[in-house]
């Protein structure tokens, strides 16, 4: 009876999606900071299907627009490695400068912007030519990088200067410096470019910036009963495509905050694994995956239900995560 029922539902599902192969099977790539590896997850089965050995201390990961290549910041190798996502082999590296941690890709995919912490620079790399094409001086310990959806504005956060530097990508000049709270680590634009969100790990807040007016619009802070202020350390930010909801990883607070991105009110805290770093949606926004450093796993959040539905074991100290169509 149950089998019958299942078959029935399956048929229904097929009907509603048409005859094409299921569109919801994606691949997630998780960087394991201590494991020196990338774990590949099938988001349909919600399990790890492959582990790839890469360079030392892999953290920031970014996919090319077509998903064919994965760029991996291998900090202890002072390089950005290029992984072919079909063959899962390293095909080369980009000259990043010392200890790369996070990078962002121009909307057209031709330029990589990477923070170069030792020299207080943002370094520009031409993807095709695989060479450095310039740099932009910023504050002390540049870290978070984001680019506006139209590609016109680059944002870099500097951890010790505590600023978001807004940079015109055409002139490569800083056009504004906005003070945010201590140790800004990550930046993310709303998909319509109307807001820029910056997380301050030590300050414990999110700064919402108006990129057009180039000014701080609002700060969001967090309160969790039974947790000290110090343990709430916002890092990764994911905003839904419609700009209505935000998810913020809270580090050692072991939670992801769900925020109404319009009213900026916190709706819920979801308990995930330990020391949650970065987040990534599946392209259909059905799931949100979280990389949990200390517990060596990835939590899967059902975005519609706002529930954590699974924990997937990965390598040692997962840090970054991205998802691509298979």
């Amino acid at each position: 009876m149950q089998v019958e029922m299942k078959k029935h539902i399956f048929m229904l599902a097929l009907l509603s999606f048409g005859a094409a192969s299921p569109a919801f099977a994606y691949r997630a790539y998780v960087s394991n900071e201590k494991g020196n590896s990338i774990t590949v997850i099938d988001t349909d089965k919600l399990e790890a299907i492959e582990t790839v050995k890469v360079g030392r201390r892999p953290r920031g990961v970014e996919l090319t627009k077509d998903g064919a290549e994965l760029f991996i910041c291998a900090g202890d190798d002072d390089a950005i490695q290029v992984l072919d996502t079909k063959t899962l082999s390293i095909t080369g590296k980009l000259p990043s400068g010392p200890d790369p941690e996070l990078l962002t890709l121009s909307p057209g995919g031709e330029t990589i912007y990477v923070s170069n912490e030792n020299d207080n620079l943002v370094t520009l790399i031409d993807v095709k030519r695989r060479e450095q094409i310039g740099d932009i001086p910023v504050g002390v310990e540049p870290e978070g990088m984001a680019i506006s959806p139209d590609g016109g504005m680059l944002v870099n956060t500097s951890e010790t200067t505590n600023m978001a530097h807004l940079i015109d990508t055409k002139t490569k000049e800083i056009v504004a410096n906005i003070l945010v709270d201590s140790r800004p680590r990550y930046a993310e634009f709303k998909k319509d470019g109307s807001e820029l969100w910056v997380s301050s790990e030590v300050g414990g807040t999110i700064s919402v910036i108006d990129p057009k007016k180039r000014e701080l619009k609002q700060k969001i802070s967090f309160e969790i009963p039974g947790m000290s202020k110090e343990s709430i350390q916002p890092i990764g930010i994911s905003l839904t495509k419609d700009g209505k909801r935000a998810f913020v990883a809270l580090g050692p607070a072991n939670r992801v905050a769900v925020i109404d991105a319009e009213s900026k009110k916190i709706e819920k805290y979801l308990l995930v694994g330990q020391r949650v770093w970065h987040l990534a949606f599946t392209p259909d926004e059905k799931y949100l995956l979280t990389a949990n450093g200390v517990s060596n796993d990835v939590s899967v959040i059902d975005v519609a239900a706002l529930k954590v539905i699974k924990s997937i074991p990965v390598g040692a100290f997962p840090w970054g995560v991205v998802v691509a169509p298979q």
Partner: peptide, 15 residues
């Protein structure tokens, strides 16, 4: 030049 430009613009953004 870059330094001066950055400085001037910084003053626009900060008090």
């Amino acid at each position: 030049k870059r330094f001066v430009a950055a400085l001037c613009l910084a003053l626009l953004a900060l008090p």
